[in-house]
Amino acid sequence: MKKFIALVLLAAFPASLFGGEVITVKGSDTMVILAQRWAEQYMKKNPNVTIQVTGGGSGTGISALINGTTDICDASRPMKPAEKQKLKQRFSTLGVEVKVAKDGVALYVHESNPVKELTLRQVKDIYTGRITNWKEVGGKDARIILYSRENNSGTYVYFKDVVLETEDYAPSCQNMPGTAAVVNAVAKDPNGIGYGGAAYGKGIRDMMIKADDGSPAFLPTAETVGNGSYPITRFLYMYLKSRPAGEIKNFIDWVLSDEGQEVVTKVGYFKVR
């Protein structure tokens, strides 16, 4: 009984009464490095605050937000109507969406791959299984090996909605647990192609992407993502269950400040303001 009372008391009173504030951040693997950098810098400036960052994917983060086990959810895609509905049922709120960065979804290929650019249509046809050989897009005669993310990934959902135009991924697609795993797989596979956040594009080559046959091709750079000329550009989000208050509000305000947005650039993403 004493244990129970102690648990209730611990839950009822905020941790700040007993020590420093703890903010939990969970979600997008695409954003995990960015979130860690934000947390490190913010904690340096505010030693009384502890920010705990974990990944797991946007879907996992949104689930954690719905079940109340995280204060902030990082997501590389917008919340779905069904997820908003669950949040509404549990907390009687709509949730608060904060756009914190911009990202270009890069198409990764092996450094030896001779294909330099693809149209959005070709990318769609490759990932839906209509194009299966690199020679069909100007490369060597070799089967295209597809690497994707798992379906709890916001990048997976975004790519499916925007690039595949809601069509299904080809069954031969190999689903990897994180963007780093996609990059590793493509780095070792001369016939591989993968996708993920531009910030991860180290050790492999980014493909230039054209909106259509008549458009110029762009690499995902600060300029092309910032001005929207790179065709696969998206926002990165933080979600909260309610309007932020206290230390959480301070943290969000700092993330959106010049200093917080500098971190975005350093990690390889693009400022929202």
Binding site: K88, F91, S92, T93, L94, S242, R243, A245
Partner: peptide, 12 residues
């Protein structure tokens, strides 16, 4: 009907 009361929580 739901409404998020600042600093308290959602009401429905």
């Amino acid at each position: 009907i739901i409404y998020d009361i600042p600093d308290i929580g959602g009401i429905s």
